[in-house]
Simulated scan of single mutants.
Amino acid sequence: MRNLEETSTGALPRSAVGTILTEARRTPLFVLIVFVPVVILLEQISPEAHTWLFLLSIVAIVPLAAMLSRATESVAAKTGDAVGGLLNATLGNLTELVISLAALQAGQYLLVKASIAGAIVTNTLFMLGGAFLVGGLKHHLQEFNRVNARFQASLLFLATIAILVPSLVSEADQTPTGAFSQQLSLGLAVLLIAVYALGMLFSLRTHRELFASVAHGEDAETSWPLSVGVAVLIVVTLLVAMVSEIFVGSVQVAAQHLGMTPAFVGFIVVALVGGAAEMTSAFSAARANRLDLSVGIALGSAAQIALFVAPVLVLLSYFIGPEPMSLQFWPGAVAMMLIATMAATLLSNGGHAAWYAGVMALAVYAIFGFTLFILPPGAGQ
């Protein structure tokens, strides 16, 4: 783990290091970055201190998320909000992918599925709703490209249907799980990856004019050069993945000590911590009246998890997991994903946003979170 950190830091250009130091002096929040080496060192010295590792990991991710947000704004200023949102969603989802791969290798398929479902619901409701609220409190009415928003929501709805089918068929037709569920999930995984690839071709190449930003909003303050922004994005994402791996290793034991149920941990806590970097970027962009970037990050990240990350995990389970993983989720998770997708479709249909739209989305998320928090420990499995 130390070698990875040294390699990442060594690969960072001097100009990028100077940029990070300048931003650290300007933004007091970046002082918390000292907790990154602290949590890595603590994990080496005392790997059994799960509660401390859990709490320090959360603190360490905060400045990394802020740095990732700043770099994303600079890259988006050079490439446009559509590409910037896709880039941020892709790099941000590496954290969820690292978390899921660690759980997949350990055979903790319930945690994998909980983190996938939780990430979809959190990005769709909490991140999008938070962006509407934060942006709406500063700007009376905000506009965004509803074609892009509806496109992402449609992709998300398609993926939710693909996740719903294995569970629905198994329950309704009483088909034997196991071989049938694995075969169906394998075919659906290949189909979803193909649909996602064609969707990227459609939005970024053949019909890219439909996805242009409605308004560019306020320019990022002292925008970084593109090379510096990309370098910072890559290195900080690696550090976020490292800290997230420590977080996952300690979260279950720490959750028991802190009185949190496994369902709440997988669906809410892991999703919030894993998406901290993307949320910071989305909220910051909304405050700068760049709601297209916020919507692109929130819905694009959710669609990418459903259409790409989840199917890839199904394929990888054949190679690194103790047994193949299916796309069959428990009914409560499927219902929450479906409701979140419908809410995103309704919220993005008009191309306008105000702060109260964010309140409604956050209220739905709070309902889900409270339900999972008081859920009995053995439920939802």
Rank of each mutant, 00 (worst) to 15 (best):
N349A: 13
A24V: 06
Q256I: 01
Q328I: 01
G85H: 00
I45S: 13
R208W: 03
V214D: 04
P13K: 01
M336Q: 08
A241C: 14
I246K: 07
M1S: 14
S167K: 01
M325S: 05
M342Q: 03
I45G: 11
M260V: 11
L168I: 05
G358M: 06
K138V: 14
Q328M: 07
V253M: 07
M1H: 12
L68E: 10
S281F: 06
A343C: 11
A306R: 00
P376S: 11
F373L: 15
V295G: 02
I320D: 10
V195S: 14
L158W: 05
G266R: 04
V265P: 05
A106H: 11
S348M: 07
G92S: 08
A288V: 00
K78L: 05
V59Y: 03
G378L: 14
T22Q: 10
R208M: 03
G229Q: 03
V240E: 06
Q142K: 09
R26D: 11
S301H: 04
A298P: 09
G275L: 11
L316W: 10
S281L: 12
L137M: 14
F264R: 09
R205F: 10
P377L: 06
S115T: 11
V31S: 10
V364M: 08
I99L: 14
A114L: 10
L101M: 12
A271E: 13
L258C: 12
S250V: 07
A379F: 12
G378V: 12
P13V: 02
A103C: 12
E209N: 09
A77P: 02
S74E: 02
H207M: 05
A357G: 10
N148I: 00
V364Y: 03
L32A: 11
I246M: 10
W355C: 13
F264T: 06
W330H: 13
Q252A: 14
I268H: 08
S185K: 00
L29W: 09
F157K: 06
P311T: 03
E323T: 14
F126L: 11
T72R: 00
T72V: 03
R25C: 04
L101S: 07
S294N: 03
V134T: 11
L372D: 09
A357S: 10
A179N: 08
G350T: 14
G358E: 08
R290G: 04
A82R: 00
A298C: 11
L110A: 15
A76R: 01
F202E: 02
A353W: 00
V98R: 11
A119R: 03
N93I: 02
W330V: 08
H207G: 00
M325W: 07
A340C: 14
L55K: 03
A363Y: 15
A241M: 13
H257A: 12
S69L: 05
A82M: 05
W52R: 10
T9K: 08
G136D: 02
V83F: 15
I58G: 11
F126I: 02
D173P: 07
V214G: 01
A335V: 15
G130D: 06
A102P: 08
A212Q: 14
F308S: 01
L111T: 14
L101G: 06
R290H: 05
V269P: 01
R14P: 00
S115G: 13
I268W: 05
L141C: 11
T206E: 00
R205A: 09
F35Y: 08
Q304I: 01
W355Y: 15
L347D: 04
L327D: 00
A24M: 13
G217N: 02
L4I: 07
T124F: 03
G187R: 05
A212P: 00
G18N: 12
